[in-house]
Design a protein around this nucleic acid. Structure first.
Lengths: 156, 156
DNA sequence: GAGCAAAACGGGTACGGAATGTCATGAGGG
DNA sequence: CCCTCATGACATTCCGTACCCGTTTTGCTC
């Protein structure tokens, strides 16, 4: 299976990403309200995973004041529909590269630069499902996060 | 809720588990102090993953009062040496089945009964390492947690 | 051994970050 | 118009760490 090339096509074009989400919402009859859209933009604008309270701060800079539930409700919506991922091990959120399809890809998180790479390959997920099946376990969601040093940081 | 008889090959014998850790500490010249030992016992005594503040409460019941740093310091020690695992997605801690060897096994966490099964098979970890290698990523730690319904809960 | 400095351990306070509960208001879509 | 959903705002809980300080353990020297 060729995986070359696929992993690095980051969401370089935030606008394109937003539009894709917009279209998906339209198709599914979801309401991408101004707030939800704004939060999504903030997430997409950042190359690395963002923390909820950072988003909150940025929102406050724009809109005066905001409280945690505001941001968490938006995050919940975006998570629920697969437009973003939550990285449990670092309490951070990042845009999803394939918002159209449901998946739980592995993430490779660099300790040094903080970037997280979504690895677009379902082999691991499938292997995990096989193992779950052996156990008679009905798998629903999965979290796979690897910490280490990314290629760029290693090269210095 | 029936927690009867035999669940998998869990750490059925907490004492045995404690002894194994004791021996490992001896071998490595680590200090399993009374506090650390007590925390380990509390974790081992619970069939399912425990939260830090629950441990804190139990400790308080025994010793009068305790503060968060007390428990977190003990947890840090136990984590650092691989005697327990942290489940990032549920902020909980659970005993490690193979405290002698370093590993980051997949966990299958039941949403219904809260049990977490450590899956003793390195295939996934190895596959992940291969993928990391493709990316030029130097993997250090990994977290793999699957949420769903366990076999027992499915059967009712 | 005795003495001593350095490190490790743990009690405790206080705080920052993460997330949820609840009540009330407001915008949108039938 | 009414009902639903979205947001605002307040409070609270949960998770985790920084820091201070006294005590114990360790490792070293003599």
């Amino acid at each position: 299976m060729t995986t070359s090339g696929t992993h690095h096509h980051h969401v370089h074009a935030p606008n394109r990403f937003i539009h894709e989400v917009e279209a998906t919402c339209e198709r599914r009859g979801l309401r991408l309200t101004p707030l939800r859209r704004r939060v999504l933009e903030l997430i997409a604008a950042d190359e690395r995973p963002v923390k909820a309270y950072d988003l909150l701060d940025r929102l406050r800079q724009e809109t005066g004041k905001s409280a945690p539930p505001t941001i968490y409700r938006a995050l919940d919506f975006l998570l629920e529909h697969g437009f973003i991922h939550k990285l449990e091990s670092i309490n951070s959120y990042t845009g999803c590269h394939h918002p159209s399809e449901r998946h739980s890809p592995p993430f490779f998180i660099c300790k040094q630069c903080g970037h997280a790479t979504e690895f677009c390959n379902s082999e691991v997920a499938e292997l995990v499902l096989r193992h779950a099946h052996e156990l008679g376990f009905a798998a629903q969601e999965q979290t796979l996060e690897v910490h280490g040093i990314c290629a760029r940081c290693r090269r210095g």
